[in-house]
């Protein structure tokens, strides 16, 4: 069985989901690991296990603030995620090779947009583009139709430029987590094939944690 990862989960103190509960449920669902990415600060609680990866999701209002926060957190946490949504912030995040993941580039409710230039930068800098399936779970009707449309557009660009892509739940409680096969079925709603979805849940997250794409870049620079 492949190793599945969910790299965008929010835990206590930001939400009411204790780390231990999340770990129990995710293990039961068949994940090999989850990343706790609270906004602007890493989870203080130390968990002695390989299952939990502590990351941070940087939320900023301006490009300057984003850059400052990236510098602040870089090297201190194994996973650096940027809270996307705004066009300028998306662009700034994908241009920075220290960033690991650009979370929900189309915004949590599909208000932003990602253009072809940004995706090309993401491919070059090894910044993974995240598809936030939580938005599909929590929205209905018109909102969901708009989000699916945006995701389809993004998927087209990601395929074209071969940028790394991942699927995450953006869970705020144990009830927001979904089992890997359910995530694959949800990804099929916007046209992602089963193979692509499986690699977006296994190989690519593994690669992000190993900094696979970053290493290549460093070798090139030398």
């Amino acid at each position: 069985m492949p190793n599945f990862f969910d790299l965008n989960v929010h835990a206590y103190p930001e939400t009411d989901a204790p780390v231990e509960e999340l770990r129990r449920v995710a293990k039961r669902y068949g994940y090999a690991g989850i990343a706790l990415t609270n906004h602007n600060e890493s989870v203080k609680e130390r968990v002695e296990s390989n299952f939990i990866i502590t990351g941070v999701e940087i939320r900023a209002n301006s490009v300057l603030e984003l850059k400052r926060k990236v510098t602040l957190h870089w090297g201190k946490v194994p996973l650096l995620v940027v809270h996307g949504g705004d066009d300028k912030l998306n662009r700034a995040a994908v241009e920075d090779s220290r960033v690991d993941i650009l979370a929900h580039p189309c915004g949590e409710n599909g208000e932003g947009e990602l253009n072809h230039v940004s995706v090309r930068y993401a491919a070059a800098n090894g910044v993974a583009i995240d598809f936030n399936l939580g938005a599909l779970i929590h929205n209905r009707r018109g909102d969901r139709a708009r989000i699916l449309d945006k995701m389809r557009e993004t998927l087209k660009l990601v395929r074209k430029y071969n940028a790394p892509m991942i699927l995450t739940s953006n869970a705020h409680s144990i009830y927001d987590l979904r089992a890997p096969h359910e995530m694959i079925a949800l990804a099929a709603l916007f046209g992602m094939s089963k193979e692509e979805a499986t690699s977006a849940l296994c190989d690519i997250p593994q690669g992000i944690l190993e900094k696979r794409w970053k290493k290549d870049r460093e070798v090139e620079l030398l």
Partner: peptide, 17 residues
Amino acid sequence: ASLACIHSVNGARVGIR
């Protein structure tokens, strides 16, 4: 996919697999 999209039943949060 339909089961995965259910987030609450009668106000109580749920997760189905």
